[in-house]
């Protein structure tokens, strides 16, 4: 068992490594779908909505003022090294975590992230222009997926693997709630648009951004209805990016981690995940809509945040800090 222990700091780094890559991938997805949305008459407003969704108004305005153009928003979120929420910053953070973790992760994991970051860093600002956005996002998504694939294929399945997966799933669930929120927050209020061809195209785009278009078609061949799409993204049992799938998987992994590696912590996080799991399994999308979709998303995000801090306390050194303080 001597080799099966995991340094608390490594657990934290691997958790965040996974989160940052997942975050970058989802931001690429959001920008991609936003570009599709923005082809309608409210295009300008839509670009602003991405900033709002991520609560980045103040930071954005410091840099670009009130210029919510496609160019500025894309630059802000893709190539801006000074914006901590840009894709470049996320991948830099992922790579810095990976640098710390190099004794633990496979050489291939490190090398791919290293090359990915260096290419991102070398992108000229002009690379983030609207007409190139789609191919740029496709490249970023692929690089993130390559990372996930290399990890799946090369990373040793000890504790580190569990913390990696937990980070990825928690981030993914959080991001899915944000993708759903974008659409509802800013497009649905216009009642006149519901069911119009432009609207259907946007729902298609939303599903595509979550890589769920084909899966949705199989589940709901009858048509594209906003509440069904939201239900699919939040509550579907089989779709790998749905909040419910992510929570179920995280719950299973944490249970397994605790039983296989004789770690004592994690009970608070597990309790929250159990609750979330029951909640997501027991509700229909109609229930959710009745009590407010946005509020529901907010509540999920809050709970997921709680899981993150519980893990930090129990596994990443928080509890040890308490102990050292007492000693």
């Amino acid at each position: 068992m001597a080799s099966m222990i995991l340094l608390a700091r490594y657990a934290e780094c691997i958790f965040w490594l996974a989160r940052y890559v997942e975050r970058a991938e989802n931001l690429a997805r959001i920008l991609d779908v936003q570009e599709t949305f923005s082809r309608d008459t409210r295009g300008q407003q839509n670009w602003r909505s991405v900033i709002q969704i991520n609560s980045d108004e103040a930071r954005f305005e410091d840099r670009f003022g009130k210029e919510f153009t496609p160019e500025t928003v894309i630059q802000f979120y893709v190539t801006d090294p000074t914006n901590p929420t840009s894709i470049q910053s996320s991948i830099r953070a992922a790579r810095e975590n990976a640098r710390t973790l190099r004794p633990l992760i496979s050489t291939e994991m490190w090398s791919q992230l290293n090359i990915f970051y260096n290419r991102l860093r070398e992108l000229p600002p002009s690379a983030a222009s609207p007409h190139r956005l789609s191919s740029l996002c496709a490249w970023i998504k692929e690089a993130c997926q390559a990372h996930t694939g290399i990890t799946e294929g090369t990373f040793y399945r000890d504790q580190g693997w569990y913390f990696y997966q937990l980070g990825r799933l928690i981030e993914r669930a959080d991001q899915t709630t944000r993708i759903v929120d974008i659409k509802y927050h800013h497009l649905l209020p216009s009642v006149a648009d519901i069911g119009t061809p432009a609207d259907v195209a946007q729902w298609n785009a939303l599903l595509r951004s979550a890589a769920g278009y084909h899966a949705y078609r199989r589940k709901h061949p009858s048509g594209m209805r906003p509440e069904l799409v939201a239900g699919f993204l939040l509550l579907d049992d089989f779709f790998p990016r749905s909040v419910r799938s992510c929570v179920q998987e995280a719950d299973r992994l944490l249970t397994e981690l605790r039983s296989r590696f004789a770690v004592r912590g994690g009970s608070a996080a597990l309790e929250t995940l159990d609750e979330l799991r029951a909640l997501l399994g027991g509700k229909t999308i109609r229930d959710v809509m009745r009590s407010g979709l946005h509020e529901f998303n907010d509540m999920i995000q809050l709970q997921l945040g709680g899981v993150g801090s519980d893990l930090a306390h129990d596994f990443f050194g928080g509890a040890l800090q308490d102990l050292a303080g007492a000693a």
Partner: peptide, 16 residues
């Protein structure tokens, strides 16, 4: 990552 208790060295892990 290391801590000394009673003149012995320990590392901080996920399991204590």
């Amino acid at each position: 990552d290391l801590v000394i208790l009673n003149d012995h060295v320990f590392m901080k892990t996920t399991a204590g």
